[in-house]
Write a protein that binds this DNA or RNA. Sequence first.
DNA 1: GGAATAGTGTCTTTTAGACATTATAAG
DNA 2: CTTATAATGTCTAAAAGACACTATTCC
Lengths: 219, 219
Amino acid sequence: MDFVRPIATVDVVIFTLKDRMLHTALWPREAEPFAGAFGLLGGFVHVNEDADLHACAQRVLRDKASLNGLYLEQLATFSGGTRDPRGWSLSVAWLALLPVEELEARDRVTLVPVDNMPEAMAFDHETIVAAALDRLRNKSVYSTLPSFLLGDAFTIAELRDVYQMVLGVEKLDLAGFRKKILDLKAIEPIDGEMRVGTHRPAQLYRRAARDLELFDRTI
Amino acid sequence: MDFVRPIATVDVVIFTLKDRMLHTALWPREAEPFAGAFGLLGGFVHVNEDADLHACAQRVLRDKASLNGLYLEQLATFSGGTRDPRGWSLSVAWLALLPVEELEARDRVTLVPVDNMPEAMAFDHETIVAAALDRLRNKSVYSTLPSFLLGDAFTIAELRDVYQMVLGVEKLDLAGFRKKILDLKAIEPIDGEMRVGTHRPAQLYRRAARDLELFDRTI
DNA sequence: GGAATAGTGTCTTTTAGACATTATAAG
DNA sequence: CTTATAATGTCTAAAAGACACTATTCC
């Protein structure tokens, strides 16, 4: 109890899709330390305000970027005596996904393609982003995780594209993907809703479950 | 910076195999809060002593249970204003695996079968143990994780038994398991070393890699 | 030889992957 | 009719599962 307590913060790695590429949302830091450098959205834990760390991450998203109701899962906790010049600190990192429309045009946010991240970022945020990208790519193979980068309605072809962009693969066979994703009952058709274009209209689908679903097999 | 900082601790969920069943190591708490109740091995973060949280968990294992060099991975961070009567706290939980021989006969440790945990434990330790068990079971399907419950040399049949006990399945076909685990190059024979008994001697194997290996496919 | 477990081989079923075919819109 | 993409079906290759068979030890 009478030990010196570490600094406790949360940081959120936000991923979104833009121009058919995965991007991370970064903010230029206004205050020291690392003023001017790019960093993740983050903030101190407020023990009088936050019920727990999940609520803390939600508060930071809401107050600093007006973001609500997006997909949010705990990633890992990063720590040590040297990552923050102000003292021994730990940061509980979170992974967030959302469609780009809900993020664009927010003050000062910069969307950076994940394969072109700035070399130097505030604190150990390069490490945190790398870990988040790992988590996203690994988990996408056996879950509905990438679907949270889309809005409420999407076609099977659009969903396949998202998997391809996240996993960085060339061409998932569309027929095979369709069979698998329907067989897994991960998505369900929205009755009567179609995406139209200069071709046969496509059935629109939604996720069958509000929350993340894990599969036994691979996508 | 001038925010009230939360209490910061680490807790370690130690799993081992005994009597062909998965067990968790618990300790009766000596001090308040929850004196007398069973709890995980844990302790406060010492910012002057610990390089980071991993080092902190290792120090706790070493100082409180004389345990060194076991498998240790970060699980998740549990938090909130109500889990510890002393105040808003966060606990960074770790998952540890080791052969029972390295754990037995340690002062006051109690090995409890995972399907027979005490209803009430200190803090939110039931939740932490449940999360650790989930992680262990899920990750065992596609990794060498269960092998860390064995010592340095084991037969393929012994390794299969460990997978069965961890996953709680009846009978993984031994021939299929042998093909798969060798095909994955997850283990390698120890030249000339055999396990003898009242039957044909069995080749002894070791893990091919010191660290955890993840597979693309399923066990 | 009998009992027990190690280790190999084979057949069947299931799943994945490639790709051809048909469907339905716009222009 | 052409172009474009949606959706379905079919064939093949690969993997998983079941299980028979052989091997080697101790007694």
